[in-house]
Write a protein that binds this DNA or RNA. Structure first.
Lengths: 293, 293
DNA sequence: GTCAATTACGTTCTCCGTAAGGATG
DNA sequence: CATCCTTACGGAGAACGTAATTGAC
């Protein structure tokens, strides 16, 4: 029985403002007869007389006055909500939270973020540069919408597609025997002192079996920052492996990066999202940009 | 086109909470089919997909999430407004503003206010004790809902009905020649020094022509408070006229009040309200109490 | 195969418009 | 008597229920 519609409330407000059935009906694009019936329905549903009216005069009752104040608040909230939803739908507002490895967060991803921002300046872009394990965790806990990760995660839980395969490079001093080479094979790293990156990062997880198999010497060094890594290399503590997009972060005049010839050593990079939860309109647009653009 | 109803919003909220069409439909007392259609209508009106759903799972989209928050606020405002109107209708809340002369504000009116308050304790009763001119002015400016006044005001503007006629009394010292009399006629006040009440009060306006005609002596004294009046009388500055309900306010052992025999000198008292503006439910109830009870 | 959401379709009911009615200045 | 709100009545369309369909596990 108790059912109010926005049409009813709008008609009520129109009559409140005009105090005239004819004008109010005109504003609502209905006939005065229909408006009269609507007001009657409203009054019978509320069980309150809202207007004192005869053929000459229309005025609010005190109860109608209080109702009008409430309706004003309600329609304000309603319009605000509709606008919010509409704006999100048209990417005039919104938020996209990204989780990506430091190597891509440095340049590759910001480049695409800038393109997206230009098209949808109202959408907030949040970027977390995270190591591999943390990336999937942020997605799982709803702290990120889109992840970029070397591991695709559990297919039941995550929807992943490969973006590209990132070639790996050997990082060594410019005076290192390998420094003059155009390409290097993994097996040539045998007996080389090796500096690891942190073990929860994808480089470690991906390269560890390969370099161990190749017979590198463990220096016991394990660092997080690529700048630290290149610094250790520069001062002769050993060599290391870095992915292509991380090269810019360890660029020093006294170290050099040699591409690894082994194709299979290239690190895959996946675009990852939760399978159960759909993306917001803005996040979906950014997802499409990464996947296709 | 854009038309939302509370049924639609309630159905939406039910589905948000249950995440299950069957249960939500049960809560709304409709079939799952109807609920499905309602959600579809809602989504097409907003042009936003609100739920991700298949036969196994129902979950909000991010846009549905924001809409749900808005709807929660809207329904809260709506319920609050409906309750407010309902409470006013049933006199669980409300306000009645009264304007009455000091004589009636002292006892006669509070007595009825107490009776009303007992029945409708939630209704706030505001009382202004005002002189005659101010009473109609407060009604006119919407500062009072109900007036009690010796003047009915302009019949086009005010709706007035007489409550009673209040007998007038001569106030004099106990050692005054008239003090022993059971009744006094106006004409017997000839040559008596007379103390006036303030000229914007009804006593002055009502009694002035009569006492002047009778030939009283003007003392030049004109007071507002009845306690001042009785004090002046007690100290021999003259006599005065007071209405019956004001007697309690000038009760002193050294003054005495003698009823005026002239019936036409009795002061009429009107229940007054604005004609154009209807009373609130609470005010109407109090009006009826005064008029009939 | 079973369970749940959706679609198809028929019925009911709401809601609006036209036209007549009634009240007020 | 003119104006404006209201009532009466009929038709168009919305909304719900029943039943068949689709889809996921």
């Amino acid at each position: 029985m108790n059912n109010l519609s926005t049409r009813l409330l709008d008609a009520f407000l129109a009559l409140v403002e005009t105090r005239h059935f004819g004008l109010a009906a005109q504003r609502c694009h209905i006939t005065p007869s229909a408006l009269s019936q609507m007001i009657s329905r409203l009054e019978s549903q509320l069980q309150v007389r809202l207007f004192d009216r005869d053929t000459r005069n229309v005025s609010l009752t005190p109860e109608g006055e209080t109702f009008a104040q409430g309706v004003a608040r309600i329609t304000h909230e309603l319009q605000s909500t509709l606008k919010m939803v509409h704006d999100r739908q048209h990417k005039k507002t919104g938020r996209v939270r990204l989780a990506a490895p430091p190597s891509l967060a440095a340049d590759w991803l910001p480049q695409r973020m800038a393109r997206f921002r230009q098209q949808y300046p109202g959408v907030t872009l949040c970027l977390s540069d995270v190591v591999s394990d943390r990336c999937l965790e942020m997605l799982r806990q709803g702290q990120a919408d889109i992840g970029i990760n070397a591991q695709p995660g559990n297919p039941l839980e995550f929807d992943s597609c490969q973006l590209f395969r990132e070639p790996m490079y050997v990082l060594c001093r410019t005076d290192h025997p390998l420094a003059q080479r155009k390409r290097v094979h993994v097996r040539e790293l045998r007996h080389q002192p090796f500096i690891h990156t942190t073990r929860d990062g994808s480089v470690w997880q991906h390269a560890q079996p390969l370099v161990l198999e190749a017979g590198v010497v463990d220096t016991g060094l394990e660092v997080t920052q690529l700048a630290t890594l290149s610094g250790l290399v520069a001062h002769g503590f050993g060599i290391s492996l870095v992915p292509q997009f991380a090269l810019a972060l360890c660029n020093r005049s006294d170290v050099i990066a040699i591409p690894l010839a082994d194709r299979k050593v290239a690190r895959p990079m996946y675009l990852v999202r939760l399978r159960q939860q759909s993306l917001s309109v803005a996040a979906q647009a950014f997802y499409d940009l990464l996947r296709e653009g």
